[in-house]
């Protein structure tokens, strides 16, 4: 069955309609969750608001379990699902740069789009920055190319990297998430409230 478009179950003309609908759902949920506010997002780094951790972890686990069950039930062919390849050092350095951008700018690309949609001027400026950043990377690409293509580990899975089974990793991730939910709720209760 799935993925429906890759398997030709749904014709590719529907592709763009589906893209738009999935985008609407994505943006709607982000805004509803409070991700249109940089001060909600930044809360995860100071302990006054752990919305980001709750939403992010719950979403990752929901989708992960969904894929595992869909595969188990034969509803989806996991071999046709895109697994982003691991270029270890570029992923780490890129993540570090993004982390700096997150704490300075208060958004990530997806959340800045949805915050700009409700009129946040800081989010619109952040978006301008994203375009500039991409342009700078693109123009400087000859300098970074070698590093960008380095430490390619292919499309490896995290449980293989850790040397454990897929099921055990999924279970451990759920346990870690539950512990994180409890601990962060405890921290948030003891952190001075921030008005915004």
């Amino acid at each position: 069955m799935g993925p429906l478009i890759a398997q030709g179950v749904i014709s590719s003309e529907w592709n763009y309609v589906i893209a738009f609908m999935i985008g609407i759902s994505f943006g709607f949920v982000l805004e509803r969750a409070g991700f249109s506010s940089s001060r909600v997002l930044a809360g995860v780094f100071y302990g006054y608001d752990f919305t980001v951790l709750r939403v992010f972890f719950t979403a990752a686990i929901t989708a992960m379990l969904g894929l595992l069950y869909f595969n188990y039930l034969g509803w989806i062919d996991l071999s046709l699902i895109y697994v982003n390849p691991t270029f270890l050092w570029p992923a780490i350095v890129g993540g570090v740069i993004m982390g700096a951008g997150f704490i300075l700018g208060g958004f990530c690309p997806g959340t800045s789009v949805c915050a700009a949609a409700i009129g946040k001027i800081d989010a619109m400026i952040f978006l301008v920055g994203i375009f500039l950043g991409i342009f700078i990377f693109a123009e400087g690409y000859p300098l970074f190319k070698e590093f960008y293509m380095s430490s390619n580990l292919g499309d490896i899975k995290v449980f293989d990297s850790l040397g454990i089974s897929e099921g055990l990793f999924a279970f451990a991730l759920i346990v870690i998430a539950l512990i994180a939910f409890i601990v962060t709720a405890w921290i948030q209760n003891r952190t001075k409230k921030v008005e915004y």
């Binding site: 690309p109 301008v128 920055g129 960008y148």
Partner: peptide
Amino acid sequence: ALLGGILFGAGAQLGRGCTSGAAL
């Protein structure tokens, strides 16, 4: 915000995706 956006835009290129595409 501008500075953060620049860093995020460049970092997402190096990291082959952002919080949505690469991480989540």
